[in-house]
Amino acid sequence: MATETSAAAESARQAAGFAAVLKPVDGHISIDSVAGVQLEVRDLAEARAFYEPIFWDAAGSWKPSARTLTFESGSQSLELVQKAKPRTFADGGQHTAYRVRATRVSSLAEQLAEAGHSVEWWHEDHPQERELAPYLHDPSGNRVQLVAASSADPLIAHVAIEVHAFDYCEYLYVRELGGEVDYYHGWRVEDQTAAKAWLDGDDPAAPWTRRDNPGWTDFRDQGSKNRSIRVPRPNTQVFLRYGDTRLGMISATKTRQEPPEEQIVGTPRILFRSSMAADQAAARADAEPVPHERHGRSIYFRDADGNFSELRCG
């Protein structure tokens, strides 16, 4: 044991770099918005046929190349990359939410269901997602949410990723990239109450927003007598704002194989746009411990849970 004063202990914590994780660091990288996503699909033509009706009233155009297909709409884009075995998270909380004119949402959902896609109407917990909305998968298993809006511009309302370690991920997305926490779920009594209502009845909450998950003490105290014990819990979520767009961090619903640790550039990935010069953004990224790589005007990041992102600088 060493004896230290509390001041020394505090400076040791500061040196460890995790002080004030919640707040963006002074001079953080400034992000204008989520600029899109890059997703893996098994067949570009099949993917285009799926997304075309969704983007029907979005101003934009398709840009094909050999192994990629991009839908560009204003300052955002959906970029599809062809892979024999696409990495999608069909059974988890990772999803991309596209804006669709409110008057079209129901008919579009019907049209997609008639085309053979399984469409579910769920709600989530962010205050802007408490109305029922249609969810489905693209043919490769990427989860899609349709968001009723006054117009399809900007195209992408939010993206959500799965995380295990909130502190580490907030370190990147809040402290380093300046996201503002605009909602969190799972820390409140009312979140617990909502989870009970979900287990009790027919609350159509999106499956990754709730857990039926006995903990150790439930198992110890009741598990031997009641093998079908059910313990409802809210699934922890944190939502960050970048301009008019949002990134959701959803507590991972299962453990998945991550890409090799040394891989920094990968898919699927979130695309961020920054009007900062790449030199300036790279210098700030270099001053922080999160793994990153620079290629031209882009800086690529990998968060602690293996989620990839790309910052496209001005």
Binding site: A165, F166, W187, Q192, R211, N213, G215, W216, R233, T236
Partner: peptide, 13 residues
């Protein structure tokens, strides 16, 4: 949060 929510139940705190 890590490994706590998954199979062991509980909520992030």
């Amino acid at each position: 949060s890590r490994s706590y929510e998954g199979t062991r139940g509980g909520n992030a705190h």
